[in-house]
Design a protein around this nucleic acid. Structure first.
Lengths: 253, 253
DNA sequence: GATTAGAATAGGTTAGACCATTAGGGGGCG
DNA sequence: CGCCCCCTAATGGTCTAACCTATTCTAATC
């Protein structure tokens, strides 16, 4: 039983998918920039010579991918979104939840990714990275409120991943960070608990961040990595006992 | 300037999105398993009391997320797909390409993630991991053809990430691996080049994998990690000069 | 019994209508 | 004169009713 040269299941492309694909390609290639407006549905109908439901299916596809958002009313329509990590976060959230990943799992993965990010930052762009991190640290110091502080600290981690100079590491690291944050938001909304971030521990954390910045600024790659390993371990001990570390991640509404 | 309790732009949910959300939730929660068939469009119309275009928009959303696939004709309809990493791969591919990530970027990120995966495998489940890896190594040894061998080696890396016992690390590591593989497939199809994997280097790689398995089996976590760091570095030197290491990742069509 | 033509099923696409929401302009009132 | 409200136009959201097309099953025919 040989496959004939013509074998292989052929996939008949649907009009809506083709349409969505064209727009997606234009967005990824940068031909359509964030903020640009797509033509109105009526215009698209005449441009592409397809019916309205077909157009709308294409729009739903792109919307579900987070590439456009649609608003109603006069001057409404589909606008191109800035390409964010949202899609990666959503996809990772689904994959992690369906496999039963726990907060501890994700924290361990982050502990694997972030210290090398600190090393790369110190190696490749110490000055810029230190400046960006210091700016975020200032925000943390002046901010009020437990939730706002927690968000600012999360942002510090994101800045570190951004400034490491490796796009791939940044994308996956931030996706994990975002999944955790999403889970926390939903879990807090459900349980209305309060975060018990003691002041003493917070100050210790900020001092540790300050030290990281100094090591990066000095170009001490090995030192920055080692310090951040220690930081993540220490912070993880505190944080994971605060949350139910074994609870399965939940990113559903 | 305080936000009033009523501030914040409200999001009017669209019927199709609500519908898609319900099905998505059921799939993620495991209430709908892979292979299950959704009711026919006609049935959904009567079940949910919405019109066909709306149903179809919901179906397009879920299809674009890779959660279902639809076939035409008698006995056709929407079937639930197995939850794979495809969504994460696609999303990561888009994010990486739009940010101009290079193959080298991604390789570096993989070099960050895989050695700790080897360490975790040796720490947490040496016997199972060694068995699974050895099985894959056998496949590599008996396989013929350059492309098939390259695919088998890629699979070895995936098995390692699966067997490390950390779901989050596995998900993001495999996503990066998959993005690279997707790019290579498209690039090969476009250029019809041939892979020049010399036999000598291939055999060296397989011996290195064998050594990793032995270290993991012995529970030598530090040794496994260190060995895999060296392996990734050595393999990277060869591989990155074979491909255009600075070429920007491309995952379009 | 194998082949093939038709019937049944179910998704793919189109057309047209009407409803709901929003921005902006014009008229009335202070 | 200026402010507010309502009206209107633009645009997406939803529905109904068809017809087309692909796929499978069945039954008639050779």
């Amino acid at each position: 039983m040989f496959d004939s040269p013509m074998s292989g299941s052929i996939r008949i492309p649907k009009t809506a998918e083709v349409l969505a694909g064209r727009v997606r390609k234009a967005i990824i290639r940068g031909e359509l920039k964030a903020g640009d407006k797509l033509p109105s549905e009526a215009q698209l109908i005449t441009d592409f010579e397809v019916s309205r439901p077909t157009i709308r299916e294409a729009i739903r596809i792109l919307e579900s991918e987070g590439m456009i958002s649609v608003s109603r009313g006069a001057r409404g329509g589909a606008k191109v979104n800035a390409l964010t990590n949202d899609m990666v976060t959503k996809a990772a959230g689904v994959a992690l939840q369906s496999r039963g990943a726990t907060l501890k799992d994700i924290y361990i993965a982050r502990s694997v990714i972030e210290p090398p990010a600190a090393r790369l930052a110190a190696e490749n762009r110490p000055a810029e990275a230190a400046a960006a991190l210091r700016k975020q640290l200032e925000i943390e110091r002046t901010i009020g409120g437990q939730h706002a502080l927690a968000a600012a600290i999360a942002e510090f981690h994101r800045v570190l991943l951004d400034e490491c100079g490796n796009i791939a590491l940044g994308v996956v690291g931030k996706a994990l960070q975002d999944v955790v944050e999403l889970h926390m938001q939903l879990s807090l909304r459900a349980n209305a608990r309060t975060l018990d971030t003691s002041d003493r521990r917070t100050r210790f954390g900020l001092r540790s961040q300050e030290k990281l910045i100094e090591l990066i600024e000095a170009g001490d790659a090995a030192g920055a990595e080692a310090h951040w390993v220690a930081h993540m371990e220490a912070a993880g001990k505190v944080w994971l006992e605060g949350v139910e570390s074994t609870s399965i991640i939940d990113v559903l509404d």
